[in-house]
Amino acid sequence: MKESIDKSEHPDDVPGYCYNRELFYGFDKERGFTRELSYQNQSNQVIIRQSWDALEKRLEQVQEAVRSGNVSPIVYYMEKMLMELPMLSAYMGLNRLRVRWHMTPAGFRRLKPPMLERYARLFEITVEELKKPGFMNK
């Protein structure tokens, strides 16, 4: 069953990745439970791909919002790091409301350099990149 579905339903247009084989268990009537090393099969790659596609889509929306000045670049980098507000505030050690204030353009403008540096260190970028993300230049 596995092979027929693999070949007919999922053509090879899915970008596969193959640098680590994992251990998969299986079951069939004759051999009982089996263990085999293999790469992730096509349908698993589809569902992994899906979550990254969803991220890209969200990033595009956030880029648009940052360009039009509705939110601060912190939101963009937060999304890029796959974070959410509670997680970001936990990593920064700040109150959620304070982080939310930094997410607005007005709050972001008033940020002092030490705080900007802390954000930049968390996002692994420079302060200039934090102030002006790369996509703004295009």
Binding site: E22, L23, F24, Y25, G26, F27, F33, Q40, N44, I47, I48, Q50, S51
Partner: peptide, 23 residues
């Protein structure tokens, strides 16, 4: 997709640990 991701990825041995438990 989230159901399937939780069941098949992140090192479950396949099928949300059901194979391992059967073994």
């Amino acid at each position: 997709g989230q159901i399937l991701r939780m069941a098949e990825d992140f090192g479950t041995g396949g099928a949300g640990f059901r194979y391992i438990y059967g073994a």
